[in-house]
Design a protein around this nucleic acid. Structure first.
Lengths: 117, 117
DNA sequence: ATTTGACTTAGAGCGCGCTCTAAGGTCCAA
DNA sequence: TTGGACCTTAGAGCGCGCTCTAAGTCAAAT
C-alpha cells in the first residue's frame, strides 16, 4: 500500500506518516524496489491505535515510549499495560471535567434564553 | 486585588493575565494610583468563565469574539447564545468521542491482563 | 527521449497559546 | 536610604505537533 493510500485510510497526511516514522512511532515500514514506502495491514492497525492515543490526548513523547516498549517485546507488556491504565485514568478525568463544564454551559445558555445574560 | 492574587485565585499566571488583557479577552481592568492592575470580583468571575471556555477547547480567537460581543452590550445576546450553543455541541461531541475511545483502551488493557497483547 | 507526477530525505517553518525578557517604575522593610 | 521584590509595557522566544520546502530519484505515459 502506497503512502497516499495509507494516508487516506488512516486519516493522516503523507507528511504526518513520514514524520511519525522519523520520530520512531512507526517502525520498519517496508520499502518497495524503488525505495518507496509500502504499508502493510498491520501498519494500518497500529496507526489506528496510535491515532486513538493521540485523539485522547496522549503526548507524542509518551506514544514514542510506548512504541519503543512494544518493539522490545513481550517482557515489556506489564509496563505498557500500566501506561495505558494511567492514560485511561487521565481520559476518564478529562471526560468528567468536560461533563462538569458542560453543565456550566447549559446554565449559561439557559440564562441567555431567559434574557438574563 | 493585585495581579498575583488574581493569578492565584484564577489559576492562571500573572503573565497570562496580562496576555489575556492585551488580546482583549479581559477588558478595562482597573489600575491603582501607581498604575498597577487592581482586579475586581467581577473580573475574577469573568476569568472563571473564560477558563471554562478554554478548558473545554474553545480557541482563543473565538473567546475574543465572544468578549467583544459582550462589550457591545445586550443587543449581541442572541449571537453570544448561539456561540455557546455551537460550542456546547462540540463539547458534547468531544465527550462522546472520548467515551468511545475509552472503550478501545479498556479492551486493550483487558488483553494485556489476559497476556495476549 | 522527455515530460509528468509521486516518491525520497533532511531540515526549515508555522500556528497556537502561552511564557519569558528587557528596561524601567514602585513599594516596603531594615 | 537602600535593597529587593514587586509592578509596568513592548516585544521576543518557546514547546508542541505537525506541515511544508528543497533538491533529488524513479516510473509511467507521450
Amino acid at each position: 500500500m502506497t503512502i497516499q493510500e495509507a494516508a487516506q485510510r488512516s486519516g493522516l497526511t503523507a507528511h504526518t506518516l513520514r514524520y511519525y516514522e522519523r520520530i520512531g512511532l512507526i517502525h520498519s515500514v517496508g520499502r518497495n524496489s524503488s525505495g518507496h514506502r509500502d504499508y502493510a495491514e498491520q501498519d494500518l492497525q497500529w496507526l489506528e491505535f496510535l491515532t486513538k492515543l493521540r485523539t485522547t490526548g496522549m503526548p507524542i513523547a509518551d506514544m514514542c515510549r510506548y512504541a519503543e516498549l512494544r518493539r522490545m517485546g513481550q517482557r515489556t507488556a506489564d509496563e505498557r499495560r500500566r501506561m495505558l491504565e494511567l492514560h485511561r485514568e487521565r481520559v476518564r478525568a478529562r471526560i468528567a471535567q468536560l461533563s462538569q463544564d458542560l453543565e456550566v454551559l447549559d446554565y449559561k445558555i439557559d440564562n441567555y434564553r431567559r434574557g438574563q445574560a
